[in-house]
Design a protein around this nucleic acid. Structure first.
Lengths: 216, 216, 216, 216
DNA sequence: AATGAATGAGAATTCATTCAT
DNA sequence: AATGAATGAATTCTCATTCAT
């Protein structure tokens, strides 16, 4: 009787092998980003997105089983980029540097990530919670914080340590969002402020000195 | 929000002079809060809200010209409560106390405000930015920060000062949101963390010492 | 994200207590019958039905959660009418009469049922199999045949007896459909033919004589 | 069927002279049969059919102007097979044999036809009546009945005779459908039942005895 | 001739808002 | 003033059919 899609919204309906198809997926995702940014995820309509992408709804649905899938693929892409950033950032000797050095290493790529992904940050900031992919990005950032802290401050109770990681991440995330939204604050100013704040906050818990690296 | 009326959604359609009317407005706002919390602002339907409030849609529309108006009135109420909190908090000698004393005075009522308004915080956190009333709350909190800072650190360029106020507010706001969402962090833990962070951040700009109050 | 109805299409969405509502349900069902008859169940659209009923789609959906529900309610009504007919028809002494007498008792109300329900017969004849309600009507007619036969011909193996009931029912049903579809055959002619056919067919299995009723 | 083209769906768009083309038409028809059987004619999509046939929609439309045409060609094929069966069955001396002999001659090939065409029977049983080709099959079967009867019972008014032919055909058709659908009835059991029923029904109108063949 | 991506009209369903009662 | 049924525009998604490659 023409029921609407019963699929469990599995990402892409059909992995496009052809270049044409890949390009179209990209164009749709780009269009969606623009539309989401303008009117929000909920208010965006599939027809709007298709038109913006220069196609028809039909085409859109050839690649995405439903609107939610567009959001999820977009979120998954965002998560991938976040992962790539971590990989680059997490050097093995990180836990043994001074806090100032750690921040010198960590903050710039973090800023770059937030700069490059400002659209997605804005889109997902107001995103319906059901976008798990986005929550995972946060969880991952928190986890790597946690790992670092576990080495630097092994005496901390796990629960406390986790809270610190959460708070730390929340501070970074929320301040990095500032330039995205109206405020006329620059990313570099935020970077400076973050340095001050985190030196104090993290230093409070794990000290600011270098650690002697494990012998051997 | 898919409005169909052309009205500019002017808050209350008719100021209810009767007690009966006032009570109904309250019941509708309470119901709306509950429904918004459960399903989000966009997904909430006016019929749901009316039923929860124990009335009919028709009645609801007697007091609110459209769904958006409910959101705006709710936001306005939230703003009022924020203002009340400021009024209480801003003692005339505040600028001249030590930073630690200032935080001792400011943080507890701030926490209380966030505790008491957690529902609204949660509702508006994911709210489409177009709810101006909400932005005003933020602007007001930022403005009072700014005023304080203007006295304590008169040498700061206005723009810098404003940025500090913005950052300061964003830190408070985002950390105070943590207990509201999933995280098992308590308000008191957050209060401690805030103290550390703000001592460092604000202290960095305006010093932590007492100021000699203006003579005369 | 605005998914379409997830309800399991439970008959009526809301049992209309008011007369107005009841009448509207009737008008919708009448309209649906007419439309189904003209274009078939699958091709019928809810808007068509609503218009025919003199309402709007919205109203239609106030009573029926989806198109399928209309079909099911219609089928349920049909089943009820069939049950009413059985109740009337099945006299306790039926098994002990001669076959000719049995047919005299059974065939006229059966004909009346098929005459009065010719529209539904036509609609459901081509109905998608998922309309369980309709299958139940058939099963019930078969079951009462079976019960009769169990008394009259207790020696028959159950499987054989059931087949006879099925065949018997199928003959009745398919012949009774004839006047409904194009053919210029009257119900009375069919009744005569049925008598001949069933006398032979059933008589072949259970004899045509009276049975001595159970003593006591 | 939701046609969008204005063509009057003339069977085959292009008579395939090449062997390749003929084979493809066959493969498409086979695929369509399978798909129709599984999901029904209405729910079947042209892409499904094409994929099952190992081609593309484009190719399918090279041979069939639209979906309906597939149904019609399939029905036409079915009609042809029915005709072939008649041709084989209708021996010149048929009208002069005893009814039992006639049934002995007629019923087995009839059964074979229904067995071999069970798929089509199932497909077209629920088919919208607008497939004229299918009605023609029925009309043809009725007509040959009629012819036989005209010889055996020349005294019967034409209208009566025609009704008998219709009823006779309907009985055969509907009983022969039983094994196709859920029921666990075998074709041989049905054949037995048909013999009983038709002996009685036809015998009732045209006697069961042999006729003396026309001299000369 | 074959392919399958592209198109878009059309169907089901929802929900803000109105208005008769 | 209160009610809640009625309205229909708007949205998501499908699928017959076309047409560029």
């Amino acid at each position: 009787m023409g029921l609407k899609s019963e699929e469990t919204s599995q990402e892409l309906r059909r992995t496009p092998r052809q270049d044409r198809g890949k390009q179209k997926v990209e164009r749709i995702l780009d269009a969606a980003r623009a539309v989401f940014l303008e009117v929000g995820i909920e208010a965006a309509t599939t027809i709007q997105i298709a038109e913006r992408a220069g196609t028809s709804v039909g085409s859109l649905y050839q690649f995405f089983p439903n609107k939610e899938a567009i959001v999820r693929v977009m979120a998954a892409r965002h998560a991938e980029r976040a992962n790539a950033m971590f990989a680059e950032m997490l050097q093995p000797d990180l836990p043994f540097l001074s806090l100032a050095e750690v921040l010198d290493i960590i903050l710039p790529p973090l800023r770059d990530f937030y700069v490059e992904n400002r659209d997605f940050i804005a889109i997902f900031a107001a995103a319906p919670a059901f976008v798990e992919e986005i929550q995972k990005v946060d969880e991952q950032l928190i986890a790597s914080n946690d790992a670092l802290l576990a080495i630097r401050a092994p005496h901390l109770p796990e629960k406390t340590r986790h809270r610190i990681s959460v708070v730390n991440h929340k501070i970074i995330k929320s301040l990095m969002e500032l330039p995205t939204f109206g405020t006329d604050v620059t990313y570099d100013e935020i970077l400076e402020d973050l340095r001050v704040v985190l030196m104090a906050y993290i230093g409070n818990w794990m000290g600011t000195e270098r650690l002697s690296p494990p012998s051997g």
